[in-house]
Amino acid sequence: MAKESIVIIDYGSGNLRSAAKAFERVSADEGLDVDVLVSSKPEDVLKADRIILPGQGAFADCMKGLSGIDGMIDALEESVIEKARPFLGICIGMQLMATRGLEHGLTAGLNWIPGEVVPLRPENKELKIPHMGWNALHQPLTEPQDNRHFVLRNVDSSQDYYFVHSFVFECKDSFHILGMTDYGGLIPAIVGRDNMIGMQFHPEKSQKTGLRLIAEFMQWKP
């Protein structure tokens, strides 16, 4: 079997070196022997077996950065939608899967999962914005382990993940929400459908528990 490859899309939204290191570490620890490439070239996205869309900053700026690369969105559509290759969106990369975002003006997203990215407004006004720090996942736990999403099958409520965000992905259809976290009420933390999954938190910054999710994603065969 040919060596698997993962591409982390570089579209000018911050540092990807440590993210790449996290995937390399998991690959080594799990004995996966995967090539991890950070690239801004659509042809690399077309060639890769798995695709990671990271993201930092504001929705509008990130979407602008992504569509500013000639052919990138077409390459993403071809790889993720037509060829159904496993896709992971992280933080704003997860939010970009939405129909549209409201940060820095109304901006169209990739529209892979119907919904809007809206300001996080917890009912408890004492809660700080951004939602910053370690928080647990809830929803996957209501499912028996055998029925759970492959990537989430080992998640339990004692584990925390590192969040930092001021906007939240409001999914139109609740079945697209694969995991919730509690910040003055439950908010979507993981979304997905078919071959794609998006995480609002940063698995690459979440120490062992985060690397575990990356390992599951790298072995996921949707």
Partner: peptide
């Protein structure tokens, strides 16, 4: 910073 970011995966 870069050597740290290669070793530990936390903020």
């Amino acid at each position: 910073v870069s050597r740290t970011a290669e070793e530990v995966f936390m903020p």
